[in-house]
Amino acid sequence: MAFVIWPPVQSFYMENDMAIIQRLVRHLCTICMIGATTAITTLVLLILTEILLRSVFDSSLLVTEEFAGYLVSGAIILALAPTFHDGAMIRLTLLSDCLSENHRKVLELCMTLIALFVVLFWARYILRAALKLFDRGVTSPGVFAFPLWIPEGVTLFGLVSLAVVIFAHGLNLIWPKASVNTNEGAIDYGD
């Protein structure tokens, strides 16, 4: 079992490396959360503008439905990494609550590996789709021909960030010492 064997090897340097990774993860989460909240704010303003234009100026943006889609999608996907990092994702805990500390860690490590694999698999096919859209210069069929690789690229960024966070979560399980200082200098992006 990895974390039983490895801790003695843990060196000064390794701890330092781990600190760097954890800092990277925190920065990444902050960036993602800023992107996601910006998307939600823009969504509010977009829809309010549409209502105002329609009811006061007899006019319409004509792209509200399409862009609302990109924005809500962007918000969800970008928020995946920080939300996972906070441990807020839905999961059942009835079984792991009955396990001993060590067994729980092995189980958690397995689950983390599966999650990492799944997210990378997902990201790989988003990458494939994004590249195709970019190569062919595909745009939306709407009023404003919007290049579709842009929202697809945002999705890719969100998923890769999620993979990084999951990877770091796994490392944390193997070298738990590294997580001692996670709160020090943590960037607070909410409660």
Binding site: G69, L71, R124
Partner: peptide, 26 residues
């Protein structure tokens, strides 16, 4: 399977009906 998952996930996340949820939550 991967191509389908990528396509459906993107389509589902871009739904107009879904957009009301973050705003009501806000």
């Amino acid at each position: 399977a991967g191509i389908l998952a990528a396509k459906v996930s993107v389509r589902a996340s871009r739904s107009w009906e879904l957009s009301a949820i973050p705003l009501f939550l806000l």
